[in-house]
Design a protein around this nucleic acid. Structure first.
Lengths: 145, 145
DNA sequence: AGCAAACCCCAGTGGAGAACCGGGATATAC
DNA sequence: GTATATCCCGGTTCTCCACTGGGGTTTGCT
């Protein structure tokens, strides 16, 4: 239920990639890390996960770095979070423990709640986040006048 | 995002209490535990938490046990989960780390998603769970005919 | 070709919480 | 007073999170 540090790092990093997306040049781990104040060796792992999930792509070697795999408006927050959270549900273990009627009902309701949150996260894209951030910064500038 | 074992135990135990609520007699840990297949010493801790949160009340001594603190239709699933998960937000630490614009936006969106899930859980009461269970059992019986 | 800059992979560590188990103190019905 | 329950405090094992470190590999540049 709580926003884990891990997920927040991933989101912040991708917002950073989204803002530099129009340049076409890759962003390096180090740059993202210093910009968003994330431990770089940790961020490296998160980006690796996101790459394997097909959210970002990487360019190895000198002058390498990371790029978004798709346009910012084609990446939803749910894409990111489900990738990083790893709800792979690896084995649909056909175990024969017949869940009680109570368990089944609880699971159904929980599923409904999770789906509600999921659909909110599906509605937001990286593009939306950068726009919301820019709008917020504009407002903050207004306050200073 | 996932339903923890802990929370599921609490919900199952409370469903059990809700079904015996009309009798007016308290249910004991041991009974709930064997009925719902929960380790009893663990359930004891959960019920203690729920008691401190005001969801259930206890009766000590022989012939003691647990009772719902309110009627089953006045206890929402959110009441239970927030009690057990302990999202008390203990200290509103007025720390002076100015969150970045990106962090703020991410937090806002996350808040919105969490609120969506929360409102689903607010809509369901213990009464709803028992009714859903009974309806489901009726349907299962129909299948056997 | 050589070198440095970047990603890639694997492994380990410290702390926190989950999911338990156990023992003794306390309250209550009979 | 005794049996029966909850209450309270602690410890234990396990997993995950957050993070660090040591190499290896690919690539651009000169």
């Amino acid at each position: 239920m709580e926003l884990s540090c891990k997920t927040e790092y991933a989101l912040l990093a991708l917002v950073e990639l989204a803002t530099h997306h129009n340049t076409g040049t890759p962003l390096q781990i180090r740059q993202i890390a210093t910009e968003q104040d994330i431990p770089d060796r940790y961020l490296e792992q998160l980006l690796a996960t996101l790459r394997r999930a097909g959210v970002v792509k990487s360019q190895r070697g000198a002058k390498g770095g990371y790029l978004l795999a798709r346009e910012p408006w084609k990446i939803t927050l749910w894409d990111i979070i489900s990738s990083i959270e790893g709800l792979d549900s690896p084995q649909q273990s056909v175990d024969e423990n017949p869940k009680s009627a109570e368990s089944t009902v609880v699971a159904e309701v929980w599923q409904e709640a999770r789906h509600a949150a999921e659909s909110v996260l599906q509605r937001y894209t990286l593009q939306d986040l950068t726009e919301k951030r820019d709008a917020r910064q504009q407002r903050n500038i207004m306050y200073y006048i």
